[in-house]
């Protein structure tokens, strides 16, 4: 039995799960409003009207979970000098030539990029979404505000969708144990050595310090 490490505590897992569910709902209903080819999704989810009513409220929930992530993870997500070398080696990471990839801390540069994409994307979606929510109260002279908000909402959504596709693919299909870690919270020492060696060293030294006390 290999030694297991706590990678995500309960709070982190709860917040990530809430964010994932909220994002999924927003993505599906948003796609229904984006193109008639996907309108059936809104029908399946309780009808176009209900989807339109719930979309902004779930949007507020998603914005809250992203804010929560920002508070909890922003220190771990700070881009470090190691990330710049990691970025230069990204093609090795993509080709699974992991022995040529520089060691990562708790999150690698790709994860950090997704985090910041989602933070800024959620902020843009929240602001433009609130304008769209209140479109009936926009006076005629300011109609350009509603028009630009609608366009930017779609642009920001598409940007997050690009990140989302890669994020889900990496977590579910490419990195063995990735999905398991974010649901159950624990990883093996071997997993940590392969994917986040600097973080492993950090956790170990912290554990050592604690056991010496």
């Amino acid at each position: 039995m290999t030694h297991r490490l706590v990678r995500y505590d309960f709070g982190e897992r709860l917040m990530h799960t809430l964010a994932a569910l909220a994002y999924l709902y927003l993505l599906l209903t948003g796609l229904a409003f984006w193109t008639p080819a996907f309108y059936w999704i809104a029908v399946v989810l309780g009808g176009g009207y209900l989807s339109r009513v719930l979309h902004p409220w779930i949007g507020l929930l998603f914005a809250a979970t992203v804010l929560w992530m920002f508070v909890v993870w922003r220190r771990d997500m700070r881009v470090t000098p190691e990330d710049r070398t990691w970025r230069r080696a990204i093609r090795h990471y993509i080709r699974n030539e992991d022995d040529k990839v520089p060691p990562a801390w708790r999150f690698n540069f790709g994860q950090k990029q997704l985090f910041w994409l989602m933070v800024f994307g959620a902020a843009a979606l929240l602001l433009t979404g609130i304008v769209m929510w209140l479109v009936a109260s926009i006076p005629g002279e300011l109609s350009a505000v509603g028009q630009i908000a609608t366009l930017l909402h779609a642009v920001a959504a598409l940007a997050t969708i690009a990140g989302f596709i890669i994020h889900v693919y990496m977590g579910v299909a490419v990195v063995p144990g990735g999905l398991d870690a974010v649901i159950h919270g624990e990883v093996t020492e071997e997993w940590a050595r392969r994917h986040h060696p600097l973080w492993l060293a950090q956790v170990k030294s912290e554990n050592d310090a604690r056991s010496r006390e």
Partner: peptide, 10 residues
Amino acid sequence: HYVRVGRKDH
């Protein structure tokens, strides 16, 4: 990518 490169095997 999945077909060409696939998962990071342990």
